[in-house]
Every structure is written in C-alpha cells, then in structure tokens.
Amino acid sequence: MSVPAGKDRMAYTRKEPLGVVGIIWGWNGPMGQLPGKLAPALAAGNTVVLKPAETASLSTLRLAELLADTDLPAGVVNVVTGLGSEAGQALVTHPGVAKIAFTGSTATGKLVQRQATDTLKRVTLELGGKSPSVVFADADLDVAARGVAAGFLGNAGQACVAGSRVLVEESIREEFVEKLLKTMEMFTPGDPLTQGTLVGPLSTKAQFDRVSSYLDIAREEGANVVTGGGRFGDHGYFFAPTLLDDVRSDMRVVREEIFGPVGVITTFTDVDDAIAQANDTDYGLAASVWTTSLTTAHRMAAAIEAGTVWINTWAEMSTGNLPFGGYKQSGLGREGGLEGLDTYTQVKNVRIAL
C-alpha cells in the first residue's frame, strides 16, 4: 500500500510471510477448526507444522496424505503427532517457529502464551467460553427454544461456543422452560452415525468423568437438576441432556466451562439486567440474543462483551469471510476475514528518497 510521503519521497508497506507457523487445535472438531488456521497461513506464504490433538489425529494424517498428492511443494505442510506436553511444547518453544495458532482450553492457552514469551513469537489463542443465550419475552419462543437447546446440546456440548448459560426474561420463565424441556426431548443421545441422531457420546472416559463431576458439584452447591444429570443408557460415554436451575452466579457450574450437554437457567428483569448477567463471566467468546425488537437486538449486540453475537440464531460459523475470536479469557486475536489473514503476516514499511 502506498502512502503520502512528500514530493521527494515514496513510501509504501509490504505484507510478508512470518516463516514457520505452528498450528495446534482441538479434538472436538478437528476438520472444522483446522482450515481456519491452515488456509490463511498458506495464503500468506508461510510453511506450517500441524500438531493435532493426541486423541484426534487420524483425520489430520489423512489430510496430509491428500495434500501430498497435490502440487503443494514438499515441506510446506508438516505434521507432528504426540502429547501436548511433549510435541506441543517443543513446537511452542522452538526458536525457528515464528507464530503459534492455538485452539483449546483457557488454561492450556495461558501456558502456551507463557512458553512463547522466551522467543517472543506471535500467538493467537481461541480458547474457552461460557456463552449466554438471552431470551426476551417478545421472542418467538418456539424458535428460541430450538435454538437454545441446540446451543448447549450440539456436539454433546463439546463446543467452545456452547450457549450453556440460558438467561430468560422473568415474565416468560415458566412458559419458556416448558418449551425448552419439550425441545430437549428431541436430543436423545445415540449413535452419531445413525441418521437423525442429534447428540452423540462424550469423547473419552476422562471427559465423561469430568462432566459427571460437575453434576456432583452442582448438587453440592444446591442447584436443582430439572432433567438429565447423569449417564444415558447402560454403555458408552453417553450423557443425558441436562438442565439446571436454582443456580447462583457464584456457582462453579455457572462460571466454569463444563464441555458437556449441560445448561443452567436464570432469569433477568430488563435489558440492563440482561446485559449485566451476560457479561458476568471471565469469558467472552459468543452469545445469542432472541428478540423481535431490532432496538433490543442492536443494544444487546453492542453491549455484550463477546467476539460473536448471534441474533435469533446460534452457531452460524463463518466460512472464513468474518472474523472469529474472543474477549477476555476466551482468547487473543482473530481467525477469519482480513483480520485473520493479517495475523499470519509481517508488515514492513519502505521509504525511498527520490
């Protein structure tokens, strides 16, 4: 880009590749998450080293085989498998790696950032969430119930954008909960390879035990299990779609990311109260607002501290033309859009005396 620099000067900027980019991403949607990192890194002229999650590596290895059959030069895309504490750490701390693009838990993201400081490499982090779904009294409640249920039950709740905090205007609480519970009956856990299944199993025994432990915590803290609350069926790691009420803002099930099919429901009185509750979290990845009022929709979209706000819909993820990322402890930087592409470049300014 050329910029004005005086009659005897020429000035312009160059965007250049960073060099080697390390990409580390999650097990909960490996082929959904990877393109948002890999494509812009390559488009910007970088080479990449991919480190998939140790529990979900096969799809990445297959992708590498497919790429090897293209005209992509050898060595441009590389794969290293292994544990995060070994292979991942080696990639993050290597002085030859110019940038790390990471998707995962907030705790691990903080570790990645700390380890990257010794070499001052660039870091973008897409981390956890505890996203609100805010339902106003003027919303189409049938549509909202379907969207809210999908928001915290989709992928068995194993999603960073899961709308696990359900905020409902006080005047419609009873009506909406009834509709939500009826909708949740559609989300019967089953074989994910069977047509019509909306909720599959949790990914591993460790994940099943983690979600189960949060239900124990919820009961200890005084929450009421409206539906679900434990294993579904007598085999596998299926967890029943769960809704909790009688919760307080200081409860762990309200504040911490569970990563399972568990929603908590609270009420609000007006727009200001809805904004305050929506923002009462350490996270800020996504939110949804359900209302027929454009005024309310725009006010909420401006006030909610989150990188993505959906109005009367949920989890419509961009194919790359819109930026995605979080506020607060949900991450640093953006993926997608021009903002995402720029994170894989180095900017140089050039001035020439004529």
Rank of each mutant, 00 (worst) to 15 (best):
T197S: 12
Q115M: 15
C160S: 06
R122I: 12
G229F: 01
P192S: 09
L198M: 12
G129F: 03
A116K: 05
G147R: 04
G163M: 07
A162S: 14
F239K: 01
A149R: 01
G154S: 13
S203G: 08
V143S: 15
V148H: 05
E126T: 03
D245R: 10
R173W: 13
D140S: 10
D191T: 06
L167C: 05
P189Y: 03
K121L: 13
G190V: 02
M186A: 14
F187C: 01
T204C: 06
E178F: 08
D140H: 10
Q113G: 11
E221K: 09
M184A: 09
K121D: 05
V211F: 04
R173L: 14
F238K: 00
Q113M: 15
M186W: 05
K205C: 04
T197A: 11
G200D: 05
F152A: 04
A150K: 12
Q115A: 13
A145D: 04
A162C: 12
T183V: 13
D138S: 10
A149Y: 05
K205F: 08
G233A: 12
V168L: 11
G200F: 07
S213V: 07
G222L: 12
E170S: 15
F239R: 00
H235T: 14
M184N: 03
A159T: 08
L198W: 06
R210I: 07
A144V: 03
V161F: 02
F136Q: 00
S203E: 12
V166T: 06
S131M: 04
I217N: 03
A156L: 08
P192G: 07
D140K: 09
L215M: 15
H235A: 14
G163A: 10
S212V: 05
D118H: 15
S212D: 14
G157Q: 00
G222C: 11
L167T: 02
E185I: 01
T227S: 14
D234Y: 09
G229N: 07
R173K: 14
D209L: 12
V225M: 09
K179N: 08
L181E: 11
G154E: 10
A139N: 04
G154H: 11
S171Q: 13
V226R: 10
T124Y: 00
F232G: 03
Q158N: 06
G128S: 10
N224E: 14
F136S: 00
T183H: 06
G163E: 09
P201G: 07
L141H: 02
A156N: 04
V247I: 15
L202Q: 01
P241Q: 06
L243I: 10
D245I: 05
G190A: 11
C160Q: 03
M184I: 10
E175P: 06
S131V: 01
L127E: 05
S133I: 01
L202R: 02
V166W: 05
V166Y: 05
R219Y: 08
H235R: 15
A218R: 00
E175N: 13
D216C: 11
L127S: 02
F152T: 01
V112L: 06
D118R: 15
V123Q: 04
T227Y: 08
P192E: 09
S213Y: 10
S203D: 11
K121T: 05
R165N: 09
K205R: 14
K182H: 13
T204H: 13
S213T: 08
F187W: 13
E221G: 05
Q207A: 09
